[in-house]
Design a protein around this nucleic acid. Structure first.
Length: 570
RNA sequence: CGGGGCGUAGCGCAGUCUGGUAGCGCACUCGGUUCGGGACCGAGGAGUCGAAGGUUCAAAUCCUUUCGCCCCGACCA
């Protein structure tokens, strides 16, 4: 493709509303344009990357024996009503009505629809296993779309669904998908971790996330430095230290005017944050409960919800805190608290703790669980950096930030039972089909890749998904230069190598800046003194040192480029 | 939905407090000089100041309503 004929509107200044690197670079590089909150145009370069990711995903799905289908994005409400997700999805569902007033929605995910296919087409255990997948736009009315392509209201997802007649079969299907996912993420050139995860609202048992490591990630994961254990902090098991922390002291009320936060109070009273007993008031449906964790720990809200027996919990409002503790936010404590109290195991071992006095501007020191207050002891904190690994018991956990790019689940019979998707087993008995579901955020991966592969000058695409393999730059308009470039361009395309040829009438600086920004992995430059000497310049985008470019005789150029591209694709 | 902020030319912004000529940089068009890391000079085009209503002789600016967008939280691929 000739640059001047393409649509690659690069811009120097980043749009003001972009905060993520990927959002800034994809916009500046002319890959995407915002249409509305969480909705984007894919311009030619952006679409080429998206399509390449899709192609890799398709290849690996097909290779794993999955069958591509396509379900509608526009759906009648009846299917979601069958499983009650019409209600459960709440505001996240884009709802609409047809001219007759009937309820419809845009598909946020397709368990019900694919289960409907299964219940109509699958009769016998002989029909199983099956795995159906699609690559399609999904619609979710996100509370807060953000980060460019990282979180959209319309996004491209690959969703696969497995159907098995036995538990073992389902596990095998899951395992097959897990392997396929590993191949996909490897081919995308990403640094990622497969981690144990929460099944959330999908309603399943076993599940794992594919987390791409990036500082901008919103998910916290922990991984052991000694074994293969890795988990989302939401589900990471904590191995609490057994030794009591510190020695017992006498309970004393102290005046802490204006000091409410943990770090603040710890500094004011000159104690370590792990000596603090952080007391948080949570609302779980109608119940209000206090959770006590050590000052250096955080509450695992998913675990807390399970302990309290509810779907979700939320921090109480300021008004609720005042009502239940009689003090301003920042001064809550378990001593004398009359409601339900959950104490984290680590916090229960703190001997001379510091906690709020349930009285504004006052704290208690020398507080100890079992002596000064009671409460159910449970593991309700999040795993944190430096914890002992719960799996091997030897290594230490390190925390990482990750972007969730894939998630695989064993669903069991959650959907098939509700929707009556059954098969006849060998004994002519009707059984619900055992399902699994497997998602990859294809459009999110476009952004995720950039989050991990960029430098101060721009994007750095892995060859496997780069919009073009080679960026050919010609400097000037000299006829011999253009003719030589044209010959190389034609030869490379005929070999299946995709070339973007920047033949614009621009100054070299402009071309080089654009080339770096767009981030095509290999740049070939024709022109100037080098051309006069019979050479072309070649430079890998990953090479940041400008002195590291390579001079190659024009006659050898094609072979050298082919070699580079083939090796990078291998 | 709770909290904070922003809507002025394609993009980035100033002007709003204290009402009175709509401005700057980039981009764009034309002419010239330049040409290996975002050139320079000259000339030019381009804006219902998010929308509606109000106050006023006069509104980007003050008042009311409304829409959109962004950031921090709860959700997710």
């Amino acid at each position: 493709m000739r640059f001047s004929r393409s649509l690659i509107p690069t811009i120097k200044e980043a749009p003001a509303d972009a905060t993520n690197v990927s959002h800034v670079l994809l916009t500046r590089g002319g890959f995407i344009r915002r249409v509305g909150a969480g909705m984007y145009d894919y311009l030619p370069l952006g679409l080429r990357v998206l399509k390449k990711i899709e192609a890799i995903v398709r290849t690996e799905m097909d290779r794993a024996g999955a069958l591509e289908i396509l379900m509608p994005a526009l759906l009648p409400a009846e299917y979601f009503k069958e499983t009650d997700r019409w209600t459960k999805f709440g505001d996240n569902l884009f709802r609409l009505k047809d001219r007759k007033g009937a309820d419809f929605h845009l598909g946020p995910t397709h368990e019900e629809i694919v289960t409907d296919i299964a219940r109509r087409e699958i009769r016998s255990y002989r029909d199983l296993p099956k795995n159906l997948y699609q690559v399609q736009s999904k619609f979710r009315d996100e509370p807060r779309p953000r980060g460019g392509l990282l979180r959209c209201r319309e996004f491209v997802m690959k969703d696969a669904y497995s159907f098995d007649s036995t538990e073992d079969g389902a596990k095998a299907s899951y395992e097959e998908m897990r392997k396929a996912y590993v191949r996909v993420f490897d081919r995308l050139g990403l640094n990622y971790r497969m981690v144990a995860a929460d099944s959330g609202a999908m309603g399943g048992s076993t599940s794992a996330e594919f987390q791409v490591l990036a500082d901008s990630g919103e998910d916290a994961i922990v991984a052991c430095d000694a074994c293969s254990y890795a988990a989302n902090v939401e589900v990471a098991t904590v191995t609490p230290a057994d030794e009591p922390a510190g020695t017992s002291g006498e309970r004393t009320k102290v005046h802490t005017p204006g000091h409410g936060g943990i770090a603040d109070v710890a500094a004011f009273l000159k104690v370590e944050t792990k000596q603090m007993l952080k007391s948080l008031i949570y609302r779980a449906q109608k119940e209000v409960a206090m959770v006590v964790v050590r000052g250096d720990h955080d509450v695992n809200e998913i675990r807390l919800a399970r302990i309290l027996g509810v779907d979700e919990v939320a921090l109480a409002t300021e008004a609720d805190v005042r009502k239940t503790t009689g003090a301003a936010v920042g001064y809550a404590g378990p001593v004398g608290f009359t409601g339900r109290v959950i104490v984290d195991r680590a916090a229960s071992l703190v001997k001379s703790g510091v906690t709020g006095a349930n009285e504004t501007d006052h704290h208690l020191t020398g507080v100890e669980h079992g002596r000064d207050f009671e409460g159910e002891v449970a593991d309700v904190r999040l795993a944190s950096n430096g914890d002992t690994c719960p799996s091997c018991g030897k290594g230490k956990l390190t925390t990482y930030k990750g972007i969730e790019a894939g998630h695989i689940f064993i669903l069991g019979t959650h959907y098939s039972a509700k929707m009556n998707a059954t098969f006849l087993d060998e004994t002519q008995k009707k059984q619900p089909i055992i399902m699994g579901c497997y998602g990859i955020g294809v459009s999110r991966l476009v952004a995720t890749t950039i989050e991990q592969h960029n430098d101060a000058s721009g994007m750095r695409w892995p060859m496997s998904i780069a919009p073009y393999h080679v960026h050919l730059c010609t400097l000037g308009k000299d006829e011999p230069v253009l003719a030589a470039a044209q010959a190389l361009y034609d030869a490379l395309w005929s070999k299946g190598i995709e070339v973007l040829w920047d033949e614009r009438d621009e100054r070299p600086g402009v071309k080089f800046k654009d080339a770096d920004l767009i981030g095509i992995p290999f740049r070939v430059t024709f022109g100037g003194k080098n051309f006069a000497a019979g050479n072309v310049e070649m430079k890998a985008r990953d090479e940041s040192d400008p002195a590291k470019s390579e001079m190659v005789a024009i006659a050898d150029a094609q072979a050298r480029i082919e070699d580079f591209v083939r090796k990078a694709l291998a």
